[in-house]
Design a protein around this nucleic acid. Structure first.
Lengths: 119, 119
DNA sequence: TTAACACTTGAACAATTGCTCAAATGTTCA
DNA sequence: TGAACATTTGAGCAATTGTTCAAGTGTTAA
Protein backbone atom coordinates (compact mmCIF):
# COMPACT_ATOMS: atom_id res chain seq x y z
CA UNK A 1 0.00 0.00 0.00
CA UNK A 2 2.05 2.93 -1.29
CA UNK A 3 1.26 6.12 0.57
CA UNK A 4 1.05 8.50 -2.34
CA UNK A 5 -1.64 10.79 -3.62
CA UNK A 6 -3.02 8.39 -6.18
CA UNK A 7 -3.64 5.91 -3.45
CA UNK A 8 -5.11 7.89 -0.58
CA UNK A 9 -6.53 11.29 0.10
CA UNK A 10 -4.61 13.85 2.11
CA UNK A 11 -4.56 13.11 5.80
CA UNK A 12 -6.57 16.11 6.89
CA UNK A 13 -9.72 14.84 5.19
CA UNK A 14 -9.77 11.60 7.11
CA UNK A 15 -12.26 11.04 9.88
CA UNK A 16 -10.04 9.00 12.12
CA UNK A 17 -12.63 8.07 14.73
CA UNK A 18 -15.02 6.84 12.08
CA UNK A 19 -12.27 4.87 10.38
CA UNK A 20 -11.24 3.33 13.68
CA UNK A 21 -14.84 2.43 14.53
CA UNK A 22 -15.32 0.79 11.14
CA UNK A 23 -12.06 -1.10 11.48
CA UNK A 24 -12.83 -2.49 14.89
CA UNK A 25 -16.26 -3.77 13.90
CA UNK A 26 -15.12 -5.43 10.69
CA UNK A 27 -15.48 -9.13 9.96
CA UNK A 28 -12.49 -11.49 9.90
CA UNK A 29 -11.15 -11.93 6.38
CA UNK A 30 -12.15 -15.57 6.05
CA UNK A 31 -15.72 -14.79 7.01
CA UNK A 32 -15.81 -11.96 4.49
CA UNK A 33 -14.75 -14.36 1.77
CA UNK A 34 -17.16 -17.10 2.78
CA UNK A 35 -20.00 -14.62 3.03
CA UNK A 36 -19.20 -13.17 -0.38
CA UNK A 37 -18.78 -16.63 -1.85
CA UNK A 38 -22.20 -17.69 -0.62
CA UNK A 39 -23.80 -14.63 -2.19
CA UNK A 40 -21.91 -15.27 -5.41
CA UNK A 41 -23.31 -18.78 -5.52
CA UNK A 42 -26.79 -17.38 -4.96
CA UNK A 43 -26.16 -14.71 -7.57
CA UNK A 44 -26.60 -16.72 -10.73
CA UNK A 45 -30.03 -16.80 -12.39
CA UNK A 46 -29.79 -20.49 -13.25
CA UNK A 47 -28.92 -21.41 -9.68
CA UNK A 48 -31.66 -19.11 -8.40
CA UNK A 49 -34.15 -20.93 -10.59
CA UNK A 50 -32.95 -24.32 -9.40
CA UNK A 51 -33.37 -23.35 -5.76
CA UNK A 52 -36.85 -22.00 -6.45
CA UNK A 53 -37.79 -25.19 -8.28
CA UNK A 54 -36.68 -27.31 -5.35
CA UNK A 55 -38.98 -25.40 -3.03
CA UNK A 56 -41.85 -27.68 -4.03
CA UNK A 57 -39.94 -30.86 -3.24
CA UNK A 58 -37.23 -33.12 -4.58
CA UNK A 59 -36.48 -33.28 -8.28
CA UNK A 60 -34.12 -35.38 -10.35
CA UNK A 61 -31.58 -33.72 -12.65
CA UNK A 62 -33.77 -34.43 -15.61
CA UNK A 63 -36.78 -32.82 -13.93
CA UNK A 64 -34.79 -29.69 -13.18
CA UNK A 65 -33.59 -29.62 -16.75
CA UNK A 66 -37.20 -29.69 -17.95
CA UNK A 67 -38.38 -27.03 -15.50
CA UNK A 68 -35.60 -24.69 -16.53
CA UNK A 69 -35.50 -25.56 -20.21
CA UNK A 70 -31.76 -26.05 -20.04
CA UNK A 71 -29.42 -28.89 -20.89
CA UNK A 72 -28.79 -31.74 -18.46
CA UNK A 73 -25.11 -30.95 -18.49
CA UNK A 74 -25.55 -27.32 -17.64
CA UNK A 75 -27.97 -28.14 -14.84
CA UNK A 76 -25.65 -30.81 -13.47
CA UNK A 77 -22.74 -28.37 -13.40
CA UNK A 78 -24.81 -25.88 -11.42
CA UNK A 79 -26.20 -28.52 -9.08
CA UNK A 80 -22.63 -29.40 -8.31
CA UNK A 81 -21.84 -25.84 -7.32
CA UNK A 82 -24.91 -25.75 -5.10
CA UNK A 83 -23.97 -29.11 -3.58
CA UNK A 84 -20.42 -28.00 -2.86
CA UNK A 85 -21.77 -25.08 -0.91
CA UNK A 86 -24.26 -27.18 1.05
CA UNK A 87 -27.27 -25.56 -0.52
CA UNK A 88 -28.69 -28.80 -1.94
CA UNK A 89 -28.39 -32.47 -1.09
CA UNK A 90 -28.22 -35.38 -3.53
CA UNK A 91 -29.72 -38.83 -3.09
CA UNK A 92 -29.24 -41.59 -5.61
CA UNK A 93 -32.03 -44.06 -6.32
CA UNK A 94 -30.90 -46.46 -9.00
CA UNK A 95 -29.95 -44.53 -12.10
CA UNK A 96 -31.67 -41.41 -10.89
CA UNK A 97 -30.23 -38.74 -8.60
CA UNK A 98 -32.71 -36.69 -6.63
CA UNK A 99 -31.90 -33.26 -5.29
CA UNK A 100 -33.46 -31.42 -2.35
CA UNK A 101 -32.82 -28.16 -0.58
CA UNK A 102 -30.21 -28.80 2.09
CA UNK A 103 -31.37 -26.00 4.31
CA UNK A 104 -34.64 -24.06 4.12
CA UNK A 105 -32.78 -21.09 5.63
CA UNK A 106 -31.61 -20.32 2.12
CA UNK A 107 -35.16 -19.45 1.18
CA UNK A 108 -35.18 -16.87 3.99
CA UNK A 109 -32.40 -15.14 2.08
CA UNK A 110 -34.58 -15.19 -1.01
CA UNK A 111 -37.51 -13.70 0.88
CA UNK A 112 -35.50 -10.89 2.42
CA UNK A 113 -33.79 -10.16 -0.88
CA UNK A 114 -37.09 -10.16 -2.75
CA UNK A 115 -38.44 -7.55 -0.33
CA UNK A 116 -35.49 -5.35 -1.22
CA UNK A 117 -35.88 -5.98 -4.92
CA UNK A 118 -39.59 -5.21 -4.82
CA UNK A 119 -38.86 -1.98 -2.89
CA UNK B 1 -34.97 -26.47 -27.04
CA UNK B 2 -34.20 -29.45 -29.24
CA UNK B 3 -35.80 -32.63 -27.95
CA UNK B 4 -32.87 -34.98 -28.41
CA UNK B 5 -30.96 -37.21 -26.09
CA UNK B 6 -28.12 -34.83 -25.43
CA UNK B 7 -30.58 -32.27 -24.24
CA UNK B 8 -33.07 -34.15 -22.10
CA UNK B 9 -33.50 -37.51 -20.46
CA UNK B 10 -35.92 -40.06 -21.85
CA UNK B 11 -39.50 -39.26 -21.11
CA UNK B 12 -40.20 -42.23 -18.87
CA UNK B 13 -37.79 -40.97 -16.21
CA UNK B 14 -39.57 -37.67 -15.77
CA UNK B 15 -41.71 -37.01 -12.72
CA UNK B 16 -44.35 -34.94 -14.40
CA UNK B 17 -46.28 -33.91 -11.31
CA UNK B 18 -43.13 -32.71 -9.60
CA UNK B 19 -42.08 -30.82 -12.72
CA UNK B 20 -45.48 -29.20 -12.99
CA UNK B 21 -45.48 -28.24 -9.32
CA UNK B 22 -42.04 -26.69 -9.65
CA UNK B 23 -43.06 -24.84 -12.79
CA UNK B 24 -46.19 -23.34 -11.29
CA UNK B 25 -44.43 -22.04 -8.20
CA UNK B 26 -41.54 -20.47 -10.06
CA UNK B 27 -40.68 -16.77 -9.96
CA UNK B 28 -41.25 -14.46 -12.93
CA UNK B 29 -38.12 -14.11 -15.03
CA UNK B 30 -37.52 -10.48 -14.20
CA UNK B 31 -37.65 -11.19 -10.48
CA UNK B 32 -35.23 -14.07 -10.90
CA UNK B 33 -32.79 -11.74 -12.60
CA UNK B 34 -33.18 -8.94 -10.08
CA UNK B 35 -32.81 -11.37 -7.21
CA UNK B 36 -29.70 -12.89 -8.72
CA UNK B 37 -28.31 -9.48 -9.54
CA UNK B 38 -28.72 -8.33 -5.94
CA UNK B 39 -26.87 -11.40 -4.69
CA UNK B 40 -24.16 -10.86 -7.26
CA UNK B 41 -23.68 -7.33 -6.00
CA UNK B 42 -23.46 -8.67 -2.45
CA UNK B 43 -21.11 -11.40 -3.60
CA UNK B 44 -17.89 -9.45 -3.91
CA UNK B 45 -15.49 -9.34 -0.95
CA UNK B 46 -14.67 -5.67 -1.48
CA UNK B 47 -18.32 -4.70 -1.52
CA UNK B 48 -18.99 -6.92 1.46
CA UNK B 49 -16.26 -5.10 3.38
CA UNK B 50 -17.64 -1.73 2.39
CA UNK B 51 -21.11 -2.61 3.64
CA UNK B 52 -19.67 -3.93 6.90
CA UNK B 53 -17.62 -0.76 7.34
CA UNK B 54 -20.70 1.40 6.87
CA UNK B 55 -22.47 -0.42 9.68
CA UNK B 56 -20.82 1.88 12.19
CA UNK B 57 -21.95 5.06 10.45
CA UNK B 58 -21.25 7.24 7.47
CA UNK B 59 -17.81 7.32 5.88
CA UNK B 60 -16.28 9.34 3.09
CA UNK B 61 -14.67 7.59 0.12
CA UNK B 62 -11.26 8.28 1.57
CA UNK B 63 -12.25 6.76 4.91
CA UNK B 64 -13.47 3.61 3.21
CA UNK B 65 -10.26 3.45 1.24
CA UNK B 66 -8.27 3.55 4.48
CA UNK B 67 -10.43 0.99 6.25
CA UNK B 68 -10.09 -1.44 3.36
CA UNK B 69 -6.52 -0.63 2.41
CA UNK B 70 -7.54 -0.21 -1.20
CA UNK B 71 -7.18 2.55 -3.76
CA UNK B 72 -9.63 5.44 -3.85
CA UNK B 73 -10.46 4.61 -7.45
CA UNK B 74 -11.26 1.00 -6.75
CA UNK B 75 -13.43 1.93 -3.78
CA UNK B 76 -15.23 4.59 -5.77
CA UNK B 77 -15.99 2.10 -8.53
CA UNK B 78 -17.49 -0.32 -6.03
CA UNK B 79 -19.43 2.38 -4.21
CA UNK B 80 -20.96 3.22 -7.54
CA UNK B 81 -22.16 -0.35 -8.00
CA UNK B 82 -23.62 -0.34 -4.50
CA UNK B 83 -25.27 3.03 -5.14
CA UNK B 84 -26.78 1.89 -8.42
CA UNK B 85 -28.45 -0.99 -6.59
CA UNK B 86 -29.74 1.19 -3.78
CA UNK B 87 -27.55 -0.41 -1.16
CA UNK B 88 -25.81 2.82 -0.17
CA UNK B 89 -26.66 6.51 -0.35
CA UNK B 90 -24.29 9.36 -1.12
CA UNK B 91 -24.32 12.84 0.38
CA UNK B 92 -21.91 15.53 -0.73
CA UNK B 93 -20.55 18.03 1.77
CA UNK B 94 -18.15 20.34 0.01
CA UNK B 95 -15.39 18.33 -1.57
CA UNK B 96 -16.23 15.28 0.44
CA UNK B 97 -18.84 12.65 -0.39
CA UNK B 98 -20.23 10.69 2.52
CA UNK B 99 -21.76 7.28 2.11
CA UNK B 100 -24.29 5.52 4.33
CA UNK B 101 -26.22 2.29 4.16
CA UNK B 102 -29.40 2.94 2.22
CA UNK B 103 -31.34 0.19 3.91
CA UNK B 104 -30.45 -1.68 7.10
CA UNK B 105 -32.38 -4.66 5.68
CA UNK B 106 -29.23 -5.53 3.77
CA UNK B 107 -27.53 -6.34 7.04
CA UNK B 108 -30.29 -8.86 7.75
CA UNK B 109 -29.10 -10.68 4.65
CA UNK B 110 -25.58 -10.64 6.07
CA UNK B 111 -26.79 -12.06 9.38
CA UNK B 112 -28.79 -14.87 7.84
CA UNK B 113 -25.97 -15.69 5.44
CA UNK B 114 -23.41 -15.67 8.23
CA UNK B 115 -25.49 -18.20 10.13
CA UNK B 116 -25.34 -20.48 7.12
CA UNK B 117 -21.62 -19.91 6.64
CA UNK B 118 -20.89 -20.61 10.32
CA UNK B 119 -23.00 -23.79 10.10
C1' DT C 1 -21.65 -59.28 -20.68
C1' DT C 2 -23.71 -55.90 -23.18
C1' DA C 3 -26.86 -52.14 -24.18
C1' DA C 4 -29.38 -48.41 -22.43
C1' DC C 5 -29.64 -44.49 -19.81
C1' DA C 6 -29.24 -40.87 -15.89
C1' DC C 7 -25.82 -38.28 -14.61
C1' DT C 8 -21.02 -36.29 -14.07
C1' DT C 9 -16.89 -34.35 -15.59
C1' DG C 10 -13.16 -31.84 -18.24
C1' DA C 11 -11.73 -28.84 -21.84
C1' DA C 12 -12.65 -24.89 -24.55
C1' DC C 13 -14.69 -20.53 -25.59
C1' DA C 14 -17.18 -16.23 -25.03
C1' DA C 15 -18.84 -12.99 -21.75
C1' DT C 16 -18.44 -10.61 -17.41
C1' DT C 17 -15.95 -8.50 -13.72
C1' DG C 18 -12.54 -6.00 -10.57
C1' DC C 19 -8.50 -3.66 -10.52
C1' DT C 20 -5.10 -0.05 -12.21
C1' DC C 21 -3.86 4.01 -14.49
C1' DA C 22 -4.76 8.35 -16.43
C1' DA C 23 -7.77 11.93 -17.28
C1' DA C 24 -11.94 14.53 -16.07
C1' DT C 25 -15.41 16.72 -12.47
C1' DG C 26 -16.84 19.35 -8.84
C1' DT C 27 -15.83 22.18 -4.86
C1' DT C 28 -13.19 25.32 -1.86
C1' DC C 29 -10.20 28.94 -0.91
C1' DA C 30 -6.41 32.11 -1.62
C1' DT D 1 -9.17 33.19 -11.62
C1' DG D 2 -6.14 29.38 -10.53
C1' DA D 3 -4.32 25.91 -7.51
C1' DA D 4 -5.42 22.12 -4.51
C1' DC D 5 -7.87 18.17 -3.62
C1' DA D 6 -11.82 14.59 -3.00
C1' DT D 7 -14.06 11.99 -6.04
C1' DT D 8 -15.65 10.06 -10.50
C1' DT D 9 -15.08 8.00 -14.82
C1' DG D 10 -13.34 5.38 -18.99
C1' DA D 11 -10.17 2.30 -21.18
C1' DG D 12 -7.44 -1.71 -20.85
C1' DC D 13 -6.11 -6.10 -18.99
C1' DA D 14 -6.05 -10.37 -16.33
C1' DA D 15 -8.94 -13.51 -13.89
C1' DT D 16 -13.31 -15.77 -13.23
C1' DT D 17 -17.54 -17.82 -14.79
C1' DG D 18 -21.47 -20.26 -17.45
C1' DT D 19 -22.41 -22.78 -21.30
C1' DT D 20 -21.59 -26.40 -24.78
C1' DC D 21 -19.66 -30.53 -26.49
C1' DA D 22 -17.68 -34.88 -25.98
C1' DA D 23 -16.18 -38.43 -23.18
C1' DG D 24 -16.56 -40.93 -18.82
C1' DT D 25 -19.07 -43.20 -14.60
C1' DG D 26 -22.48 -45.81 -12.27
C1' DT D 27 -26.68 -48.53 -12.37
C1' DT D 28 -30.26 -51.57 -14.31
C1' DA D 29 -31.97 -55.26 -16.92
C1' DA D 30 -31.87 -58.27 -20.86
Amino acid sequence: MPDDKSYTCQVRALHEDAVEAARSSSLPDDEVFELARLFTVLGDPTRTRILRALRSGELCVCDVSHVLGMSISSVSHQLRVLREHNLVKARRDGKIVFYTLADPHVLDLHETALEHVRE
